[in-house]
């Protein structure tokens, strides 16, 4: 474009100030052509030619046509087409307010803009928004899942306690046969799973001091509860497979942080509630003060962190 404007400089100074229409009209008069001749050659009506020469561009059905007519006109007068079009662009950008909205498209400018666009291909803001949204969803999902799993454990713990109580009550009634007890408790509460029956079995193994203690507790459940508040709580764990264990009690004392071998069992004493973290939930069997605690793993996670003996104790 600059080259074209330089080409114009040999023409008189005043010519530079002329509008495209005025410039064409002046050139036409210099070449001694009348309007009728030009209109016939351009195949447009005389009113259109007059509109072109007076820069009344709103009479044309679109910029494409204006530019086309200007080109044809300048070709007819043997003028530089691009120079005339440049005048038109300058005129439009200077005079018409509407043109601010519909900026005339300059072919060369368009091409260079395209070249620039081809060079840089930015990641659209939409992609960024998508990423942020995805990240937010993931964070929220994890947070929800975490809280849901602890709530679930609390529920299962309380359910297990109720089952444990049912077991001790049946003991009070004098039904000492372990097998019968297990089946009865299973009938009493269909929630109890077969593996829990095993747990109930373990609880009522006839180890002497334990039996004494359970009987004492059974004599008066409430009194026993009160006693247990004072006495240190006992958490028993048995492992069918290797399992990492981290347990701390209500005072914050760490009772165990170690890997337990398959088939091992540990008994810990401390103040309930216990914060328990198990590396392999399925392999572990828990009992709090002789009452078995059922722990259901959440989803496919093997590891689980939960609290035992929080509400009722």
């Amino acid at each position: 474009m600059t080259a074209e404007t330089n080409n114009e400089t040999p023409v008189e100074e005043s010519v530079d100030l002329l509008t495209p229409g005025g410039f064409l009209q002046k050139e036409r008069e210099e070449q001694k052509l009348n309007e009728k001749e030009v209109a016939t050659k351009l195949r447009i009506t005389r009113s259109k030619l007059a509109a072109l020469e007076t820069d009344s561009y709103d009479q044309f059905p679109g910029e494409t046509f204006i530019k086309g007519y200007l080109r044809a006109y300048s070709r007819l007068l043997k003028l530089d087409e691009d120079a005339v079009l440049q005048r038109y662009f300058d005129y439009v950008s200077a005079h018409s307010e509407v043109s601010q909205l519909i900026t005339p498209s300059r072919p060369q400018g368009v091409v260079s803009a395209m070249a620039v666009e081809r060079m840089k291909t930015p990641i659209s803001p939409l992609v960024w928004i998508g990423f942020i949204a995805l990240l937010a969803i993931v964070v929220v999902w994890f947070a929800l899942q975490d809280s849901a799993s602890t709530a679930n454990v609390d529920e299962t713990v309380s359910v297990a306690e109720q089952v444990g109580q049912a077991v001790t009550e049946t003991q009070v009634e004098g039904a000492l046969d372990a097998e019968n007890l297990a089946t009865e408790s299973a009938q009493a509460d269909p929630v109890v799973q077969p593996d829990q029956m095993v747990a109930a079995d373990d609880v009522i193994q006839p180890s002497a001091p334990q039996a004494v203690e359970t009987k004492r507790a059974a004599s008066d459940v409430q009194a026993a509860g009160a006693l247990e508040l004072r006495a240190p709580d006992r958490l028993e764990l048995q492992f069918a497979d290797e399992c990492w264990v981290e347990i701390s009690d209500a005072n914050g004392d760490v009772l165990a942080t170690e890997l337990q071998a398959a088939g091992s069992a540990i008994t810990l004493q401390g103040k309930a509630p216990f914060n328990v973290m198990l590396g392999n939930v399925k392999a572990a069997t828990l009992a709090l003060n002789g009452q078995s605690v059922e722990v259901t793993p959440k989803g496919n996670n093997r590891a689980l962190r939960f609290v035992v003996g929080s509400s009722n104790q």
């Binding site: 351009l42 195949r43 447009i44 494409t64 046509f65 530019k67 086309g68 007519y69 080109r71 044809a72 498209s105 072919p107 368009v110 091409v111």
Partner: peptide
């Protein structure tokens, strides 16, 4: 080509930008 069509049809013929 615009001049050819213009001559043949007697109508103004315009080549679009780009």
């Amino acid at each position: 080509i615009d001049q050819l069509l213009s001559e043949e049809t007697g109508l103004p013929v315009i080549v679009a930008d780009d």
